Amino acid sequence: MADTHSPTTGVLEGFFGRSWSWEQRLRLAAFMHKEDFDFYLYAPKSDAHLRNRWRQDWPADQWQALKNLRHTYHSAGIAFGLGLSPLDLCTPEGKADTKAFKEKITRINQLEPDWLGLFFDDMRGDIPDLAARQAELSHFATTHSSAQRIILCPTYYSTDPVLDKVFGARPSNYLPQLGRELDPAIQVFWSGPQVCSATYPLEHLQEITHLLQRKPFLWDNYPVNDGAVKSQHLYLSPPEASRFENQQHIEGIAANPMNQFALSLPALAGLAQGIKCRAPATIDTLLKKLFSQPLAELLRQDAPFFANHGLNELDENERQRLLQRYRPHLEKEEAAREVTDWLNGGYTFDPACLTE
């Protein structure tokens, strides 16, 4: 059984660019059950019906796929949720449009989600009364949603100045006002000192807890690789143990994975072991656990280069050499096909990702 004192741990599919397939999402449920994860949040940036076309209903085939997804995660004992981004409702013009918001929540209720995320990231933040409006929308969602848990991602979800550069200067007292006005039962995502934080220092977590008047729920951007720089890399290693040494000071942690499904599994399994068992796993152990022995050995050898150097430092001869190394495994190994596709430029950076 999981350590009941461990923070709630899950996977948040929240990246830009090339999405996972529905079949991969279904397979993730069995993996998460085996690794003792607690929740999965469906929030790919490619699903426009959660973002810029959130007022529109999903097409019938996508709706059926979502129903299948919810059923599969419930059957696996994993809490299921969605991340909704009604960004334009934060503007002065959007204040009158609560009918569409209620209709969307009512539609999502038909999926019987355990969690509902309200994601206000990736939007302009220089909006009058931003914190008050986001708290108001969160309370409206709480009233109308059947989800047991509501979790908000603020517009400024890190102290990283890149957010101010891209989305406008954050309003003064944004976090204290949000913490003060937001119902204590609503949790708040936080990515740490940076959008992609290497560690979560104790002093930082204590400061954010004070500002938000609740422990932060970490949106952990590892091993995600959807940014202009990170898309040139693959991250196979488990998270460093130091990342989560202050886990008693967080409410939970949601790992944002890579665009490559199979290649994300070692880092995710390493996170689960580090949090639940409080014992860091080695990359060698994880690769052997998840892949065939020959492929695991190749990935172990190449993982440092993939993480630290990547595509930008590959000349054509080296790229061809790597393609040859993985070619014998293409037929049977999904991870080998992902490496090859990445080497061939199949995971092109999505310029909609602005925060790297």
Rank of each mutant, 00 (worst) to 15 (best):
residue 4 T to Q: 14
residue 73 Y to M: 13
residue 80 F to S: 09
residue 315 D to G: 05
residue 31 F to L: 05
residue 345 G to I: 08
residue 130 L to N: 03
residue 188 V to C: 12
residue 198 A to K: 10
residue 281 A to K: 10
residue 114 D to G: 07
residue 190 W to L: 04
residue 53 R to M: 14
residue 152 L to G: 02
residue 8 T to C: 08
residue 82 L to K: 08
residue 346 G to N: 03
residue 274 G to V: 13
residue 63 W to C: 06
residue 154 P to M: 06
residue 249 H to I: 10
residue 256 N to D: 10
residue 329 H to V: 09
residue 171 P to N: 15
residue 287 L to T: 07
residue 11 V to M: 02
residue 148 Q to T: 07
residue 6 S to G: 15
residue 28 L to D: 11
residue 26 L to V: 14
residue 113 P to N: 11
residue 250 I to W: 01
residue 329 H to Y: 05
residue 107 R to K: 09
residue 66 L to Q: 13
residue 91 T to C: 01
residue 171 P to Q: 08
residue 91 T to Q: 09
residue 122 D to R: 06
residue 78 I to T: 04
residue 306 F to K: 04
residue 15 F to C: 09
residue 107 R to H: 06
residue 272 A to G: 12
residue 62 Q to D: 15
residue 192 G to R: 08
residue 22 W to H: 15
residue 65 A to T: 03
residue 330 L to D: 14
residue 287 L to E: 02
residue 40 Y to L: 09
residue 16 F to L: 14
residue 200 Y to V: 10
residue 266 P to M: 07
residue 186 I to N: 03
residue 84 L to P: 02
residue 56 Q to M: 02
residue 38 D to A: 12
residue 214 R to V: 08
residue 337 R to D: 07
residue 118 L to M: 09
residue 53 R to P: 03
residue 204 H to M: 07
residue 87 L to K: 07
residue 73 Y to I: 09
residue 175 L to V: 12
residue 338 E to N: 06
residue 67 K to G: 01
residue 302 D to C: 15
residue 195 V to M: 03
residue 72 T to N: 01
residue 341 D to A: 07
residue 156 Y to S: 12
residue 126 D to C: 06
residue 169 A to K: 14
residue 134 Q to M: 13
residue 273 Q to I: 14
residue 146 S to H: 11
residue 342 W to E: 00
residue 27 R to V: 12
residue 349 F to A: 04
residue 263 L to W: 01
residue 263 L to R: 05
